[in-house]
């Protein structure tokens, strides 16, 4: 379990994290959603003991972050954009360096290479890998020590949908195995698809939190549904009490005439929620 209470962190005069509090249960995918510069990476650095913080407290699996030992850190898998690869070494050699440090054998290297689907690129030098393959190799390195907590900083940033989807699948499998996944992203689709709980972070402050679907429903002020007819026409209808009769009769009419192609609710997405709360876009 991760428990964070009132963490603040400044770089000079600039407050990058301001009283951040949340908790993450075991076997949960927890998302930190916010635009660039919101403080997401700083928070990962703080939680993994790479950065000191001024105020508040953070516990990971019952241990205060400030008192983390090297052995505790070995139980974390960390995948960050600025954690580079040894470009001149092969995929296997890159993992071997860290396997030697963790004291795990070649079997574990083979397992994680299979898991990230890089088994055919074992002898390929890291510099010759595509961006997607490099990200998968970084993920493999983070998974090598069988971490209890996996910190992923924008794991699919700039990747194609196919590779992103493969990485999502790996993340879900690890969650099912009981690993806590702490994920930062500015991609609302990724957050909606993956996260059990998330917080929206803006300029170092948490502006909202909850289950993604519930968050969207909470900010559904317009309560509209959208109908698409068989001839492609899109019709938007009000879904509140005052318009209940009118809306239901309109839907019934379309159904009777066999003109209804699709019908779905029009609640806002996380981007819209974030915009409403902060006036800023997520994907910047």
């Amino acid at each position: 379990m991760i428990s964070v209470t009132g963490i603040s962190k400044s770089f000079g005069d600039k407050k990058v994290l301001d009283g951040v509090s949340f908790s993450v249960e075991d076997g949960e995918i927890f998302g930190l959603l916010g635009p660039s510069g919101a403080g997401k990476t700083t928070l990962i650095r703080v939680l993994t003991g790479q950065l000191k913080f001024e105020e508040g407290s953070a516990m990971i699996n019952g241990k205060e972050v400030r008192k983390l030992t090297g052995a505790d850190k070995k139980k974390f898998g960390v995948m960050m954009d600025d954690f580079g690869l040894y470009e001149r070494l092969t995929c296997y050699q890159n993992l071997k360096v860290f396997a030697d440090i963790y004291g795990v054998g070649d079997e574990e290297i083979a397992t994680v290479l299979r898991e990230v689907k890089l088994e055919d690129a074992v002898k390929k030098e890291a510099k010759k890998l595509s961006k997607g393959m490099k990200e998968r190799l970084r993920l493999a390195r983070a998974l090598l020590a069988k971490p209890k907590v996996l910190f992923l900083d924008e794991p699919t940033s700039g990747l194609d949908p196919q590779t992103s989807s493969e990485i999502h699948e790996i993340i879900r499998k690890r969650k099912d195995a009981g690993t806590i996944i702490f994920l930062t992203t500015h991609n609302m689709t990724e957050a909606e698809k993956l996260c059990d709980h998330l917080v929206l972070l803006n300029e170092g402050k948490i502006v909202e939190r909850g289950v993604p679907k519930e968050l969207c429903l909470r900010y559904d002020h317009q309560k509209r549904i959208e109908l698409v007819t068989t001839n492609g026409e899109t019709i938007s209808l009000q879904m509140d009490r005052e318009n209940a009769k009118k809306t239901s009769s309109q839907i019934a009419e379309f159904l009777k005439e066999g003109k209804l192609s699709t019908i779905h609710s029009k609640e806002p997405n996380l981007e819209t929620v974030f915009m409403e709360l902060t006036g800023r876009k997520l994907e910047v």
């Binding site: 993994t48 790479q50 090297g70 052995a71 850190k73 070995k74 974390f76 960390v78 960050m80 600025d82 954690f83 580079g84 690869l85 040894y86 470009e87 860290f98 440090i101 963790y102 390195r141 020590a145």
Partner: peptide
Amino acid sequence: EKGTLRALMMSNVR
């Protein structure tokens, strides 16, 4: 520069 040292430090290399 390439961040490999940061990865090593995070893996408990003193």
